[in-house]
């Protein structure tokens, strides 16, 4: 593990160094909110940001991605053969990602990178990316990362963690990828004992602020069918308007839909994010829809994150506590509240 201290006035130069080596993505302010974008200039990265409005899953799993192209022109010798659409897998650094969001990629790996199914594009993008995180000194009021097993200083999903200690950043690598990155950097100084202490203090303070807001440990003990048939769903689902905000903003919602689009003689196979909140998500070709009711869809989203996933992988919940769905749900459906109901020891049957 290597570490270094980068003074704030030298930070742009450090970023510039990185930009000379590979593509660098950072939090960029776009009018109303921050989003990750490839940096054109080192100064574009706003490291004082809270968090991006949209989760950075877009960087690995674009909302719309051309998978294949094909020709339907009979005179073309390669007609009707799917060809992989060209993509850029050159190495890149994502700078300033929050620990929760980085952790989310590890959860998503369970879907995109397992022995039986390896999504080539997800895997290649993951391999070519180094994640340089930024610790959360001041977590949002609606964040709950510590409750779901990650944290404002969690290094689990990261290669390097930066901590803003006032005049500069303490950078610590947490993986061999991170080691490689830091070792190649010039301009870093030795981390003073004061700075190291500051990191500790900030970590404790931030974690304390977040606290534990509900108990996830009891979820695995609950009877699945009892939860499924619980009466509280009716209460929770009432206000839901079935938009896709929670799923589209969520860093751990990975569902997608594949569509073929043909224009003239050319066709594209495109992968788009999909949302279990949409009735179309489960609509069968026959016209039957197993989740035709709003209640079923709302329940599915929470059951998936807080029960099915828990039971299947036995490694906590499929939520990293970034709080985006809490902040942007137009009708204030709060996953923390739902989790409290679900994890309560006594579940009353309907």
């Amino acid at each position: 593990m290597s570490e270094m201290y980068i003074a704030k006035e030298k930070f742009p130069a450090t970023v510039k160094q990185l930009m000379g080596r590979c593509r660098v993505y950072g939090p960029v302010f776009r009018g109303q909110y921050h989003e990750f974008a490839e940096l054109k200039a080192a100064e574009d990265a706003d490291m004082g940001y809270q968090n991006t409005r949209l989760s950075p899953k877009e960087l690995f799993h674009p909302q719309s991605e051309r998978m294949f192209t094909y020709s339907l022109d009979k005179s073309d010798s390669e007609a009707e053969i799917l060809k992989e659409a060209p993509k850029d897998f050159s190495s890149r650094v994502i700078l300033g990602i929050r620990p929760c969001d980085a952790k989310a990629f590890q959860l998503d790996d369970r879907n995109f990178d397992v022995d039986r199914f390896r999504d080539p594009w997800w895997v290649k993008r993951r391999e070519s990316t180094t994640l340089v995180g930024l610790a959360c000194n001041q977590p949002c009021a609606s964040c709950f990362c510590t409750t779901v097993g990650t944290g404002p200083f969690d290094t689990g999903g990261l290669d390097v963690l930066l901590t803003d200690v006032g005049n500069g950043y303490v950078a610590r690598s947490t993986s061999s990828k991170g080691d490689d990155l830091l070792q190649g950097m010039e301009g870093g100084e030795k981390v003073s004992s004061e700075a190291a202490q500051k990191v500790m203090d900030l970590k404790i303070k931030a974690e304390k602020q977040l606290g534990v807001q509900f108990d996830v440990s009891t979820l695995s003990e609950q009877q699945m069918l009892e939860l499924f048939n619980a009466s509280f769903w009716d209460d929770i689902q009432f206000s839901c308007i079935n938009c896709g905000i929670c799923t589209f903003l969520c860093p751990t919602c990975w569902c997608f839909d594949i569509q073929d689009e043909v224009h003239g003689n050319k066709g594209d196979r495109i992968r788009n994010w999909d949302s279990c909140m949409f009735p179309l998500f489960t609509l069968h070709g026959s016209g039957h829809n197993p989740r035709s009711q709003k209640l079923q869809r709302v329940r599915q989203r929470f059951m998936h994150k807080l029960k099915y996933y828990v039971d299947k992988y036995k490694d906590g919940v499929a939520c990293v506590g970034c709080g985006r769905c809490v902040r942007f749900c137009p009708v204030n459906i709060d996953i923390r509240q739902v989790a409290r109901l679900m994890s309560a020891r006594c579940v009353c049957p309907a």
Partner: peptide, 8 residues
């Protein structure tokens, strides 16, 4: 984002 929140 085509989340259709405006519609819903």
């Amino acid at each position: 984002l085509r989340c259709y929140a405006c519609r819903n």
